[in-house]
Computed example of a mutant assay.
Amino acid sequence: MAQSNSRKMTAIPRPPRRPPVAHFERTHGRSLPVVEEQSAGGLVLKIENGRPLVAVIARRNRAGKIEWCLPKGHIEPNESAEIAAIREIAEETGITGKVVIPLADIDYWFSSLDRRVHKIVYHFLLEYVSGEITVENDPDQEAEDAAWYPLKEVANILAYPNERRVVSIAMQLLYPDAYVADDRYGDYA
């Protein structure tokens, strides 16, 4: 068989990953630094009159629109994801929870004007312990509102599909025999 002049296709091994400070990505003709971030939060469950409720917060997105989401925030240096989840939920909602079990890690990318961000958010199932739901003590004032919402219906108001999947995972864990697949939850239903 004659060998053609076309380039031979072979698998090329990926180079080792560079530290975030040295890693740049080309975007619109310029290089942006890539930054790694980690956050933690989750689904705080409270039973009231036999009905499971979930704590949710309302934030404004970049376009200024209100979006409902699960409470979460940055992990501080030397802080575990579990401790960060408890702290961030308390700061954003005024309530204290106790971690029961990890639910899911959400891994995604986004860009700002000066950088690309690779973010991992660790979500936990937490049991409500104490406190009144409020955003009054949110140090960053990111949360504009906080509320208890019925677990069965919370997926209807959450802005992000990944968080709806977190709810789906919690539903499957809490009610394995009663849970019925629902298209709102994506592949995890």
Rank of each mutant, 00 (worst) to 15 (best):
L53A: 00
A85N: 04
D187V: 08
A146C: 02
P52H: 05
V180G: 01
D107W: 03
H74Y: 10
E79G: 00
L43R: 09
M9I: 10
G42S: 08
G73Q: 04
I66L: 15
D187A: 15
S4V: 06
Y122Q: 15
G42K: 03
C69W: 01
P20E: 12
A90W: 13
L45F: 00
E144H: 04
G131Y: 06
D140K: 10
W68K: 06
R62V: 06
A159D: 04
V166Y: 05
I12E: 09
P19M: 13
C69Q: 12
M171Q: 14
I157F: 03
I169C: 09
R17K: 12
N78D: 13
E82P: 00
H118Q: 13
A181C: 14
A170N: 07
L125R: 08
R7C: 02
D182S: 14
G42I: 03
D138T: 05
T10H: 07
E25I: 11
M1D: 03
L126C: 12
V135P: 00
A155D: 13
Y175G: 02
L125Y: 02
E36M: 05
I75E: 02
A170W: 07
V54N: 03
R59M: 05
A104G: 00
S111W: 07
W68N: 04
T93V: 10
P13T: 06
G186N: 07
P71L: 13
C69S: 04
P102A: 11
A2F: 09
K98G: 10
T134F: 00
S39I: 01
A90T: 08
H123Q: 12
S112T: 15
S111Q: 14
V135Q: 05
H118T: 04
P77G: 09
P161A: 15
Y149S: 04
H118L: 07
A104W: 06
Y179L: 14
A40K: 09
A155M: 05
I95T: 03
N162F: 14
A143S: 06
T93L: 00
D107E: 10
W148G: 06
P13M: 04
T10E: 11
A143M: 09
I75K: 08
R87S: 12
E37K: 11
T10P: 00
G131S: 03
A146P: 01
E136S: 14
R164T: 09
M9E: 13
L70K: 08
V35D: 00
T134R: 03
E67W: 05
N5C: 03
H28N: 13
S31K: 03
A22P: 08
A63D: 11
R30N: 01
E48H: 12
P161K: 13
Q38M: 06
L53C: 02
I157G: 02
D182V: 10
L113F: 15
N49T: 09
A63G: 02
Y149F: 15
E67Y: 00
I169R: 10
G97S: 11
L174R: 15
K46P: 02
P139K: 12
E163V: 01
F110N: 12
G64S: 12
L43V: 15
K72Q: 11
A181Q: 09
P20G: 05
Y122A: 07
A170I: 11
P77M: 10
L32D: 07
V129F: 03
K8C: 04
E67G: 05
L151Y: 00
F110E: 05
I101Y: 15
D187P: 13
R164D: 11
V166W: 05
R62C: 05
A85S: 13
